[in-house]
């Protein structure tokens, strides 16, 4: 009971660390349901009741459990709660099989003396529920091994076959530009996978700093280029990598960025480019520097 009270307030105060706590909770025998993503339990000292609210994938349900222990036992526990070390995870309710994270218990020490009414608990969950989006969001990273030479060869071959620009008088493209052109194709290749649109139909815009973005903002992406490798990242949610973020998701508020540095083969160049790289590569997705 004691540790549950800690958990309750942990969940309210800091949804970000509720994953381990809810996993711990799922292990506890008296605590269904296994598919709940985040949980909230309140402990009302006066009524000797525990109220558990489970936030599942389809919303949340309220479950109220009568305290299994007798009044005397509850009193003992309450007394011990006042005196025992807060971080001690050993004095747990018999139904608890997991281990309460010590850090969480210690960090929220003052909060344990709060006792919430069931209604307050419900309100707290409602307030906190947007944050309890499934925590298993993550980043998709896509890589394309691409040297300047390979990019140049690819552009030449493609130009020849498509008959676009083999004007002999045309100025030779700078290797960086060619590398960016192929990277651009790679970006469209990846983004069209998310949006199911043809690569040619994707409309990119740039921020005032030169950072490209896709209209609508449903696919947030970021790229980085180095000789030999191009990398990009985008966010996914609901544990489904390489799928677009649902439009109603709070992930629309998120940002992802990736920076790639090649450091093994030419350290001097990287060290030097470190101070100037943003200017040099401003056109390819990095924010411009002044």
């Amino acid at each position: 009971m004691y540790a549950r009270a800690v958990f309750t307030l942990t969940a309210v105060e800091s949804p970000g660390i509720s994953t381990s706590s809810s996993r711990w909770l799922a292990n506890s025998s008296s605590m269904p349901p296994a598919n709940s993503r985040a949980s909230f339990i309140s402990f009302s000292r006066r009524k000797r009741r525990e109220t558990a609210l489970f936030l599942g994938a389809s919303g949340f349900e309220c479950r109220e459990t009568q305290n299994a222990r007798s009044k005397t036992r509850s009193k003992q526990v309450a007394t011990r709660r006042e005196h025992d070390a807060i971080g001690d995870t050993q004095q747990t309710h018999p139904c608890m099989q997991g281990t309460m994270p010590r850090v969480a218990a210690a960090a929220f020490r003052p909060a344990i003396y709060l006792s919430l009414s069931r209604r307050a608990a419900g309100r707290a969950v409602l307030a906190a529920s947007p944050r309890h989006e499934p925590p298993d969001d993550g980043a998709d990273i896509w890589w394309l091994p691409l040297t300047y030479e390979a990019a140049t060869a690819a552009i030449s071959a493609t130009s020849a076959t498509s008959g676009t620009s083999t004007n002999p008088g045309q100025r030779r493209q700078h290797p960086h530009q060619v590398h960016r052109d192929v990277s651009n194709a790679f970006l469209r290749h990846v983004i069209s996978h998310y949006t199911s649109e043809p690569v040619g139909a994707l409309q990119f815009s740039r921020t005032e700093h030169g950072k490209p973005y896709l209209g609508g903002g449903l696919v947030k992406f970021n790229m980085s280029h180095a000789d030999g490798l191009v990398g990009g990242t985008s966010l996914h949610s609901h544990s489904v990598p390489f799928r677009p973020i649902p439009s109603h998701s709070s992930h629309r508020d998120s940002h992802a960025s990736i920076v790639l540095l090649r450091f093994l083969q030419s350290p001097s160049r990287n060290a030097r480019s470190a101070s100037t790289s943003s200017c040099r590569t401003a056109g390819c997705g990095r924010p411009a520097t002044r």
């Binding site: 980043a139 998709d140 890589w143 091994p145 552009i155 071959a157 194709a185 040619g200 996914h236």
Partner: peptide, 22 residues
């Protein structure tokens, strides 16, 4: 961060490169 990684090859991209080259 849970990161899912996918490596592409230049061959995967070439077809799209032809479409957008102009």
């Amino acid at each position: 961060i849970v990161a899912s990684q996918r490596f592409s090859t230049l061959d995967d991209v070439l077809e799209d490169l032809v479409k957008i080259l102009p």
